[in-house]
């Protein structure tokens, strides 16, 4: 991990979806900093706002979603801040793909079925001015496909998405996303749609390329195993808020927030035989109708009276470990 050179700073970000049923507060006041060269993880259950947060970073939240408040300060180079929330469409197009790239969950859906994967890489690099012609783009595609360990890379450049397996499709998506040599890669559950055996291969490729290109990686996942293997720092999200953030070792050794504890208990430990896996009772609250006070209180075994009424404060138990919970308020710990 490199020093304290931030690549992206998010402050008090709010992303709301204006639907017919009402306002969905998908992301409701979150702040975090990602440092250059590290792997930062966003974890949480489905529907907690991880993906929306990720999409907000390059302003690709689909309508009716809107960033209503907050700042996203992106540092393509150290000391050169850009506020992403204040950019126009044209400037955003220069950042998207070129500086901030994405890998999405389902590679089958992310690729246009009517064009070869090589073409889709070539059009990307051609548009961003990395090559001058489609021919060079295809040559670059073959080279990058070899880098992501695509079997028969030279042939696969000419393949249509439906002719590739899930793992190969995700490899080509990774190759396309990294073809522009971005500074920041946001991988939104990159292995969820893949077979377990293929998942490890794809993550290996990502990990290797990240180190090789000195990328910063934001990994979104609900797989705690992946978090332990890949990440430097972790933020746990629940119902549109970050409830805990810590370096990965600390989080696994000393989880503080009841939700984090329960998430970790839900992960099977292969060294111990268990009759039944723990699960977290209840489900993520309906974002249209969030509970008052702490959003986790209906599912929390330690809920106090206060948790039902007042929003919990942010408590720094150490400079790198924060938790948003009443249990730690008042300096009882850390």
């Amino acid at each position: 991990m490199t020093g304290r050179d931030p690549i992206i700073v998010v402050r008090d970000l709010h992303v709301y979806f204006y639907t017919h049923a009402g306002i969905v507060r998908a992301v409701d006041g979150i702040s975090f900093t990602v440092y250059r060269g590290e792997t930062f993880c966003l974890v949480g259950e489905t529907g907690c706002g991880k993906s929306v947060t990720a999409k907000a970073l390059a302003r690709i939240v689909p309508p009716p979603g809107k960033i209503v408040k907050g700042e996203i300060i992106f540092y393509p180079e150290p000391g050169k801040p850009i506020d992403v929330t204040k950019l126009g469409e044209k400037e955003l197009e220069r950042i998207r793909g070129r500086l901030i790239a994405y890998v999405f969950q389902d590679p089958s859906a992310a690729l246009d079925p009517l064009y070869t994967v090589g073409y889709q890489l070539a059009e990307t690099v051609k548009h961003h001015g990395i090559v001058k012609s489609f021919k060079e783009g295809f040559q670059l595609a073959a080279k990058l496909f070899r880098k992501v360990l695509m079997p028969d890379a030279d042939e696969r450049v000419k393949a249509y998405p439906h002719e590739l397996s899930g793992g190969m499709k995700q490899r080509s998506v990774i190759a396309i996303s990294l073809s522009t040599e971005p500074k920041l890669l946001i991988a939104d559950e990159p292995t969820t749609a893949l077979d377990v055996t293929v998942q490890a291969q794809v993550m290996d490729v990502l990990k290797r390329l990240k180190e090789e290109k000195n990328l910063t990686l934001i990994l979104i996942t609900h797989n705690m195993g992946l978090v332990a293997e890949m990440c430097d720092r972790v933020a746990v999200m629940y119902a549109g808020k970050i409830v805990e953030e810590a370096p990965v070792d600390e989080l696994f050794k000393q989880p503080l927030h009841p939700y984090t504890k329960m998430l970790l208990q839900a992960v099977p430990d292969p060294s111990r035989r268990v009759e039944r896996l723990e699960s977290i009772p209840g489900s993520v609250p309906n974002p249209l109708n969030l509970p008052p006070g702490c959003r986790f209180h209906p599912r929390c075994p330690h809920a106090l009276k206060r948790c039902r009424e007042e929003e919990p404060p942010e408590v720094y138990v150490s400079p790198s470990h924060r938790v948003v919970c009443w249990l730690y308020a008042g300096g009882r710990r850390g």
Binding site: A58, I60, P62, L92, E93, R94, I95, R96, G97, R98, A101, Y102, F104, D106, A109, A110, L111, D112, P113, E123, T124, H127, H128, V173, I176, S177, T180
Partner: peptide, 11 residues
């Protein structure tokens, strides 16, 4: 979904 990926690539 490929539309989202096209936008995400800055095309």
């Amino acid at each position: 979904d490929f539309v989202e990926y096209i936008i995400a690539r800055g095309l």
